[in-house]
């Protein structure tokens, strides 16, 4: 059996977490290769539909990263993220998708090390959960 390589989608807000990811790069902080970043302006623009779509089509995990509460470039944009994404995870859990496949966290522009940590831990977590069962489900 070949080693399970999770395929993960990460939404990073332009101002904090994308910059934090950039900083991790500048500092050459090494991390697993499984995470693919999509840049959005604010974590609050991440539609729950994206998360549901990605997991429904077999992506193993979805990360949503934004500015810390209180530091949002758009003042309170991320307050909405803080509610939508946990709800989305719960809805998925109801129909049999482990809610741990959706993770919301806050990474500031100064937290390259936290970005590394979040990525590393999430990849480990998803490896523990195994492949998204919907990978093999054909409709």
């Amino acid at each position: 059996m070949t080693e399970f390589k999770p395929d993960i989608l990460a939404f990073c807000c332009n101002w904090c977490s994308y910059a934090g990811a950039d900083l991790a790069g500048v500092n050459r902080l090494q991390m697993p290769t499984n995470v693919n970043v999509v840049r959005v302006m604010c974590s609050a623009s991440v539609k729950p539909e994206y998360v549901i779509k990605a997991l429904s089509q077999g992506i193993d995990g979805v990360l949503v990263l934004g500015c810390h509460i209180g530091d949002c470039h758009y003042m309170t944009g991320n307050h909405r993220t803080a509610k939508r994404i946990p709800l989305t995870a719960k809805v998925l859990e109801k129909v049999g998708i482990d809610s741990r496949r959706v993770k919301l966290d806050w990474v500031s522009a100064a937290e390259g090390d936290k970005f590394q940590q979040v990525i590393t831990e999430f990849v480990e977590e998803i490896k523990g959960l195994g492949p998204n069962p919907l990978r093999e489900v054909r409709f």
């Binding site: 729950p48 539909e49 429904s56 939508r84 709800l87 989305t88 809805v91 919907l134 409709f139």
Partner: peptide, 15 residues
């Protein structure tokens, strides 16, 4: 069928 996401997206909209 419309795939796994269809009724979940509706669930979020109606939440």
């Amino acid at each position: 069928p419309p795939g796994f996401a269809f009724h979940l997206i509706r669930s979020i909209h109606l939440a």
